[in-house]
Design a protein around this nucleic acid. Structure first.
Lengths: 200, 200
DNA sequence: CGCTCTATTGACATTTTTGTCGGTAATGTC
DNA sequence: GACATTACCGACAAAAATGTCAATAGAGCG
């Protein structure tokens, strides 16, 4: 019997990078950032180690590209969700909901935690831009009294969404409560605050 | 000139372990979990690599011991803070405050995030025990209507405390708000909920 | 087809990190 | 002081992870 060698796949540079980063994302979500080893990434993508290095230069390059990609996806998802609401009343609640969705799925919160732990949290500037744009939008549309109050409030929303997205499931399981409960209550707190602000 | 060799320090096994784990904790807080290398830990503790291994067997043993130690400290801190309040009214607010303190300082939230990312979140069972004890205590003292409501609420408090503790400072800086703001608003949300629950 | 370009690769080199081992030196005990 | 115990260390070995390089092979183009 002859030795069969898998036919070599040749992709465009973009497709090759995409393929590798997708594998990285899966590893990050399933095993955490410390499992992002060159060999594992290459194996996950179905290519040789050297191929990964050819496209990204180093394992750090891979990580940087992964962060960038995930942040871009995250911001885009938030923007889309937020843009879908037109009425002033439901917009804030829907915005909060969009935040919770964005960070609760596809590893958004895990990415943020990774950045935080590795001291690369400055990379999240894209999030800042998005939040500030949204804040400006709300000022324009709903014209609430205090601008800093709006910013403060959005700040807390983002932080809560991150916390729930990262720890929610584990905490719920740990304490024997249904996983969606945390999110419900957190959103409830937020909406109560909104009613208080706008209503009286 | 003769070669001076620093006098060898000999500690009790407990003190030696303590010394090493303290160095680990500093590294974890300053540089993140990925920086917990054997050589760095040994250097931080002022001992040889082999000494670290002598006491913990392997670098994994070091990490496990560190987790255990930090969790123990964390739970103890929460318990102390919580036990200081006697009146039923302020207890919940004070409890929430204690939670925020515990996770916001000394890397409690960073530890939790690390456990979460590495998939070792089950180690946090000590936290579960503490929360359940506190919930039982509150049921006994304040006898609110619904037990699951109390549990749900504490669950959200813990998750929010974790989120604020881990992401609060970065998010505040990122959005140009004072760092203590998040904590204030979050506690405000919680206390509003308490008033709503108990008051009407 | 012949040619160029470059994504891809296995084999190898380098670096980093972890772990082993025999010996040394504090400390307590008799 | 003699001895046993063991925390401690330097030097080295092993393993793991990253990175280099020359050669190979798809794909487009004349």
């Amino acid at each position: 019997m002859s030795i069969e060698r898998a036919a070599r796949v040749r992709r465009s540079p973009e497709a090759a990078r995409e393929n590798i980063l997708a594998a990285c994302e899966a590893i990050l979500l399933e095993q955490g950032p410390q499992a992002l080893k060159l060999a594992d990434v290459a194996a996950g993508a179905g290519v040789a180690n050297a191929t990964v290095l050819h496209h990204f230069g180093s394992i750090d390059g891979v990580q940087t590209a992964l962060m960038t990609r995930m942040i871009r996806q995250l911001v885009q998802r938030i923007a889309v969700d937020f843009g879908q609401h037109q009425d002033a009343v439901g917009r804030v609640g829907a915005g909060a909901r969009a935040l919770f969705d964005a960070f609760g799925t596809r590893g958004g919160a895990r990415l943020a935690a990774w950045l935080e732990l590795t001291g690369e949290a400055r990379r999240m500037t894209a999030i800042r831009q998005a939040v500030q744009e949204v804040a400006a939008l709300r000022m324009q549309l709903d014209s609430p009294v205090d601008e800093t109050a709006v910013q403060d409030f959005m700040l807390v929303c983002v932080t809560m969404a991150l916390g729930v997205g990262l720890f929610g499931d584990t905490m719920a399981e740990l304490l024997g409560r249904p996983p969606e409960r945390i999110r419900e209550i957190a959103l409830d707190l937020i909406e109560a605050r909104i009613r208080q602000e706008t209503g009286g």
